[in-house]
């Protein structure tokens, strides 16, 4: 058995590992429906959330998951920590490690930081989003939600729409969806696509209207306002006109298709306000599943006594 077990990239899991997480998630969804939605599985374990970037849902989701497993949680937020005094990442990790924690959930604006943390730490490291690179637990909860609503991921056609270039959600999602046998089409204006798509297991389109009627899942990404300054788009309204899921566009969706969004949403930009509240939009279900999926990940890393699908 390897010394430390981490979840850094969804690619490390492979189809078997993803299946294992999703199967275990079923059990935690059942647990969440009980009167007492807490099990003693990780009693005595400590989970630290180390967030160098703002987040509400991911951090709360991980902390709720840890507590529902009876683990202790600690929150490290950069604004109130010694990082403000100039402490390096390495010193911060070594300090946390010296306290004897069992898992570090890390988010950082720079790609690759979780790998560096894993090298420095003896705890299990979970990537909660690194730069433009990866967000594995988001991909896992998305797979779970698709499976829950559509019965499976294999053979489904999934369009990921929006700011592909800057999106870790798109990268992890694409890897996980295709690993499970889905067809992925990336839909975005050229300025929001990465410079090279060599080796990406996905089709690319710039025409949302042509793609929409053919897909089972429309996965909308947040239009990151901070990118507008880079002059990648003429304006948000221009984006909405061509790539926003307006009421008129939503009407062209195939029967049974679902709409997903990782949050936070810009209502009226990438998704029309009323479309986000339709029954085929499963956005709140994604959030609910996020807790159960993260419970499964924490349990597999800290409790199950073996690596995830080695």
């Amino acid at each position: 058995m390897t010394a430390t077990r981490n979840l850094l990239s969804v690619a490390d899991l492979g189809a078997d590992g993803i299946d294992e997480v999703l199967k275990l998630t079923d059990s935690f969804v059942e647990v969440s429906q009980r009167d007492i939605a807490r099990v003693p599985a990780l009693r005595g374990k400590t989970v630290v959330s180390l967030f160098y970037e703002d987040s509400t849902r991911t951090r709360l989701s991980f902390e709720t998951a840890a507590r529902r497993l009876s683990a202790d949680t600690m929150t490290f937020s950069v604004s109130t920590s010694s990082v403000k005094k100039g402490e390096s990442l390495k010193d911060t990790i070594q300090t946390i490690d010296a306290m004897g924690v069992d898992a570090i959930v890390v988010r950082h604006r720079c790609s690759g930081v979780p790998w560096q943390v894993a090298r420095w730490s003896t705890s299990a490291v979970i990537n909660a989003g690194d730069g433009w690179h990866e967000h594995p637990t988001q991909a896992l909860l998305d797979c779970y939600t698709i499976r829950q609503r559509l019965g499976g991921v294999a053979g489904k056609h999934i369009a990921i729409v929006g700011d592909i270039k800057h999106s870790r959600v798109a990268r992890s999602g694409m890897i996980a969806f295709t690993a499970l046998g889905a067809d992925v089409t990336l839909v975005a204006p050229h300025t929001l696509l990465p410079p090279s798509l060599d080796g990406w297991p996905a089709a690319v389109s710039t025409d949302l209207d042509a793609v929409l009627p053919k897909v089972d899942v429309v996965y909308l990404l947040r239009l990151q306002n901070e990118r507008m300054t880079e002059a990648l788009l003429p304006s948000a309204r221009e984006y909405t006109a061509r790539y926003g899921l307006t009421r008129a566009r939503a009407a062209t969706l195939a029967e049974g298709a679902i709409v997903m969004h990782p949050g936070p949403m810009n209502r009226g930009v990438e998704i029309a306000a009323e479309v986000a509240d339709e029954p085929y939009a499963v956005i709140t279900q994604q959030v609910a599943n996020g807790v159960a999926v993260r419970q499964a990940v924490l349990f597999l890393l800290l409790g199950a006594g073996g690596p995830i699908a080695a």
Binding site: L24, L69, A304, G305
Partner: peptide, 22 residues
């Protein structure tokens, strides 16, 4: 009932639920 999450040997050996509790 699956008792995997309540076992006292979690971490000592592989413990995974066999099926969903109902």
């Amino acid at each position: 009932l699956d008792v995997a999450f309540y076992r006292d040997d979690i971490g000592l050996r592989p413990v995974l639920p066999e099926a969903v509790t109902e």
